[in-house]
Design a protein around this nucleic acid. Structure first.
Lengths: 265, 265
DNA sequence: CGGCTATGTCTCATTTAGTGAGATGAAATC
DNA sequence: GATTTCATCTCACTAAATGAGACATAGCCG
């Protein structure tokens, strides 16, 4: 099957081919992809495939698996990805703060950013208590609408933009996550009224609950969101308030730091 | 200045150009790169640059900065990077174990893998005690020879391969890290004799110390290394032994798990 | 050891498809 | 509203990627 039917075959074809190769490789998880995986999914010839594989390998974007004939994603991606996740320097600012929160309260804390119609997890810090979450680690991606952090991100976008995103994601939200748009709208209203978001009810993972707050720049535009996740049984009114306050303090401090270095040209 | 003098202009040029763009963007850190950064460093024309930028943006490998005319690395890299860091599924296996170690002992624990002549950090888990380290986060990369984990990785390579790596890195090791090859050889001998590596003396970061053990597959080939880092003052004989044992147990358990799923085709 | 299969490489003619120069359009700044 | 810089467009050109198939090599299994 082709990699992406709707891939509006754009721009330098070589580039697209290369990216298709990476996506196919990624799809194979830690097993990587085989020559046949590529040849079946791609529309170009074997020599071309090998040329690109070689080029990508040389750039560090692929490496060959110990199993002959299989290819894995290369560590250059990890290095660049780490950079990419530090947009606006947020991640570096957030990491120690997430750690402090996790150590103090024992819950798990997350930093998210918007990525088109999705939210990506830039950083996680798990605490001592076990927790379930849609994302397990840095690099996890969810359609906007899923999870508390999504709400915090969505709430501070323009209404038109937000609706566009939500209608784009509506199908996936219902099908894959059992979340209705109406519930999201309600939670966004809550976010705007009270300054924080809770998990959307009716989702999967019914045993867990969470909180999220936005990270806004000086003009009210969302740079990201900080969220936490915990067993529902831990979410007493007191604990909720403690954690929320802790998060708010950390975010406020982050934003202060950020303004120092964010817009200096 | 050109991106990489020794880049043996290889394979599809478009691919190389694209990768150069990514590298230049990465070099800009969280500020990204400007049009002039690209045009100064690259050897192709403005229209071509824009074509590639557009293509990379569309693929999610770049995004445009809030500041007009600047480009940042895209989150697709983060997502792929997260995948890339899970080579052989090691990272998923290691993450909870690193967390458990960090929570139990309060020190900071790391998972490393070999990446050519470098070691890359696949995962970090900081503990409650403050710590300094050459890598701050996932995606950090060090020349093999620096740090405990390097030793654990190097020790189980063939002697020829190891020497090749070390002579390749020798200059950087001395210049940037003040580490002599002889010290590394000594520490490798220690690793092979005692089964674990300590930090190489005479390096920078004199206040910190660490330990590392290899993660070996059934045939004795190194899949990665687990290491830890702590304030030198915390490294009492007792604590060292405790932590080492904890790490060894976790690694043994990991390898057991791994064998279950590693070589199933 | 010696076929067997699948991976990886090579050559070379073909022509696609990316390229450069410069003009033009769009946005932000002052 | 003028100016600068970013971004796109057009078009002719030819460099450079491509495909077909032959060739080489490495594991694999009897």
């Amino acid at each position: 099957m082709p990699v992406n039917k709707s891939s509006t075959a754009f721009g330098p074809t070589t580039l697209n081919h290369a990216m298709q190769i990476l996506q196919i490789t990624a799809r194979g998880g830690y097993r990587g992809a085989s020559i046949d995986d590529y040849l079946n999914a791609l529309s170009f010839s074997r020599p071309t495939l090998y040329r690109l594989l070689k080029g990508l390998k040389q750039q560090g974007f692929l490496r060959s698996s110990p199993v002959r004939g299989r290819y894995l994603l290369g560590y250059e991606l990890l290095v660049l990805g780490a950079q990419a996740g530090n947009g606006a320097g947020l991640r570096d600012l957030a990491r120690p703060r997430l750690l402090a929160l996790a150590q103090r309260w024992g819950d798990s804390f997350y930093l998210f950013a918007r990525d088109g119609v999705n939210a990506v997890c830039l950083e996680v810090q798990n605490g001592a208590y076990p927790v379930g979450s849609f994302v397990r680690a840095t690099g996890g991606r969810l359609p906007l609408g899923v999870g508390q952090a999504s709400i915090a991100l969505l709430a501070y976008l323009g209404a038109d933009e937000r609706n566009e995103i939500l209608s784009h994601n509506a199908e996936r939200l219902i099908d894959e996550y059992a979340i209705a748009i109406a519930d999201i709208d309600a939670e966004i209203a809550h976010q705007l009224k009270h300054g924080y978001a809770r998990g959307v009810e009716g989702s999967l993972l019914p045993e867990y609950s969470g909180l999220a707050i936005p990270i806004l720049d000086h003009s009210g535009h969302p740079l990201g969101a900080m969220s936490c996740s915990m067993l529902k049984s831990r979410m007493t009114a007191d604990h909720k308030w403690e954690v929320l306050q802790g998060m708010q303090e950390e975010v406020a401090a982050m934003v202060n730091q950020a303004h120092g270095l964010l817009y200096l040209d």
